[in-house]
Simulated scan of single mutants.
Amino acid sequence: PLQKKAKTDRRSLAFGPFLADLDGRLVTGANGTVIDMAKSEFDVLEVFLTRANRLLTRAAISEAIGFTEDPESSRAVDIRIMRLRKKIEADPANPKFLRTVRGEGYIFSLPTGDGN
């Protein structure tokens, strides 16, 4: 759920120990630690956060971040996702948030409030 903070009127979203400020393009972790991200990594994260719990193909991600659709951009998406996992997943090999759906794409899983 996208939240607006009243006093700053910024769009932000919490996931796990992280808070993503979509307008300020900043991600903070536990204790307010800033997570250093390249522009392209934040772009990919924003695509996932604004489309959480939905399957996204590489082509849809490429289009959303302005990449041309070719084999090179498909690989570029994979590389950014790999880098992003290293920054936001406790165990990048077994991701909790940014999961691969083999042969189809990726899903960014956010809790739905039902305990899962």
Rank of each mutant, 00 (worst) to 15 (best):
F15N: 02
A93W: 05
R75E: 14
D91S: 12
S74L: 02
E89N: 01
A38N: 07
F42I: 10
K7S: 13
L22H: 10
R54I: 01
S12D: 04
T100Q: 12
L56N: 09
N31T: 06
K5A: 07
G32E: 12
F15G: 01
I88Y: 03
G115Y: 11
T68S: 09
V77I: 12
L19S: 08
D36G: 08
E63N: 08
L13P: 01
T112N: 13
F48S: 06
I81N: 11
T100H: 11
A30D: 09
G105E: 08
L2A: 06
L56P: 08
P92A: 00
R10H: 15
A14H: 09
F42G: 05
R102E: 13
L13C: 10
L55H: 06
S40Q: 07
I81G: 09
R80P: 06
G105H: 06
R58W: 00
Q3H: 11
E89G: 04
G16T: 07
S74Y: 06
D9T: 05
R51L: 02
T8Q: 13
D78I: 01
G105K: 07
L2W: 09
P111E: 12
K7V: 09
R75I: 04
G66L: 04
G29P: 01
I61T: 05
E69Q: 12
L49I: 05
F108N: 07
A52R: 10
M82Y: 14
L19V: 15
R25W: 10
E72W: 03
T57W: 00
D78S: 09
F18R: 11
T28C: 10
R51I: 01
I107A: 02
T28I: 15
E69C: 00
P92I: 03
F108R: 00
G29V: 08
L56S: 08
G32C: 11
G32K: 14
L49E: 02
K87Q: 14
A59L: 01
T112E: 13
T28Q: 09
D23C: 09
K87A: 09
R102Q: 14
L22N: 08
G66T: 02
A64G: 07
I65E: 13
R83F: 00
A64Y: 02
R11I: 03
A93V: 10
M37K: 04
G113V: 03
G32W: 13
A76Y: 08
P17S: 06
R80W: 02
E89W: 03
R11E: 14
